[in-house]
Amino acid sequence: MLSRTADSLFWLGRYSERAGNVARGLGATLRMALLAEPVDGVEREWRALMVAAGCEPGFRERHDTAAQEASVHWLTLDPANPSGIAACVEAARRNARTVRTALTVDMWEAINDTWIEFRRFDSGAICGDRLPGFLDWVKSRTLLFNGAAADTMLRDDAWRFTHLGTILERADNTARLLDSRHGAFAPDAAADAACYAHWQAVLRSVGALRAYQHVYHTRLDPARVAELLLLRPELPRSLVSCYAQVERTLEAISAANGGNPGECQRLAGELHARLRFGRVGGILDHGLHDFLTGVIEENITLGQEIARRYLNGQTA
């Protein structure tokens, strides 16, 4: 496969996944903002989401305070935000158009129809009671694309690079979400209503609130929430699950292209092994923030190594 084709498929998967992740995070933050203390508490919630989405520096350049209206616009319709929903939809469609012949009809229609419908939205779509409906629409379109890819693509290199981008973006999002609220998981954190709301918000952001109840059959506990999102392979958005899939996918790509493992495979295997054999107690005792910061940095390095070995070198 040509590197430019692999590059477009990889970033198609990343941008499509990113749009859905931002929509999930927005939905959870809206609930948290309703519970927060006036002004300062609300601003902290919106800044936490922008940290998780990796777009706080750009927001700070344009706004002095993280008011809800400005934050929602920045994360949804503002084309100046490269991690916002508008930019992700545009970039996903641009990459899909570049590799149109590598996609199935269902995949192309899912992306193209999303792009067409999104262009009809105006600022009224994110105001007041209409915002939750808009966010549900974004999530449903991401699920439609992922389902089309899973159900209709041949398991060849086109599938592998699309899937690789999706899973790498998903791992990055889970790590950033947990890190943005790491204070609620500290061993000395008070198990009060505020911390309970933070644990619930993290689970809602990855669609895992019901999964938690199914696995643990008990009320929310910080160690169990962290374990579910870090170390439980049954959860598709857990870090260990994501990096297991990244490792397998890189092995399949390598086997189909000469069988020579690269640095990206070594990094993926190292990350997977650390999580597979990790224990949540040790992670929390040594500091969840330090652990997640390391994972996020290594995820960036992994993306760079994948780009160097297989893609056009795009790493942003």
Rank of each mutant, 00 (worst) to 15 (best):
Thr5Val: 13
Thr5Tyr: 14
Asp7Val: 05
Leu12Ile: 05
Gly13Trp: 00
Gly13Glu: 07
Tyr15Ser: 01
Asn21Cys: 13
Val22Trp: 02
Leu26Glu: 02
Leu34Glu: 15
Val39His: 11
Asp40His: 09
Val51Gln: 12
His63Asp: 04
Glu69Leu: 07
Ser71Asn: 05
Asn81Asp: 14
Asn81Glu: 10
Pro82Ser: 11
Gly84Lys: 00
Ala86Met: 07
Ala86Ile: 04
Ala87Trp: 02
Ala87Tyr: 10
Asn95Ala: 02
Ala110His: 08
Ala110Val: 05
Arg120Ser: 10
Phe121Arg: 12
Gly124Met: 01
Gly124Val: 11
Gly124Gln: 14
Gly128Met: 01
Pro132Cys: 08
Pro132Met: 01
Leu135Phe: 06
Arg141Glu: 09
Leu143Met: 11
Leu144Cys: 05
Gly147Val: 02
Ala148Glu: 00
Ala149Thr: 03
Asp151Glu: 14
Met153Val: 00
Met153Glu: 09
Leu154Ile: 10
Trp159Leu: 04
Thr162Asn: 10
Gly165Cys: 07
Arg170Met: 06
Asp172Met: 12
Asn173Cys: 11
Thr174Met: 05
Leu178Thr: 09
Ala186Arg: 13
Pro187Thr: 02
Ala189Arg: 02
His198Gly: 06
Ala201Cys: 13
Val202Leu: 14
Leu203Trp: 02
Ser205Thr: 09
Leu209Glu: 15
Tyr216Met: 01
Tyr216Gly: 06
Arg219Cys: 10
Pro222Met: 03
Leu229Asn: 09
Leu231His: 02
Arg237Ile: 05
Ser241Gly: 08
Cys242Lys: 03
Cys242Gln: 02
Tyr243Pro: 06
Ala244Pro: 07
Arg248Lys: 12
Ser254Phe: 04
Glu263Leu: 14
Glu270Val: 10
Asp285Leu: 13
Gly294Ala: 10
Glu298Asp: 15
Ile300Met: 13
Ile306Gln: 04
Tyr310Trp: 15
Leu311Ala: 07
Gln314Gly: 04
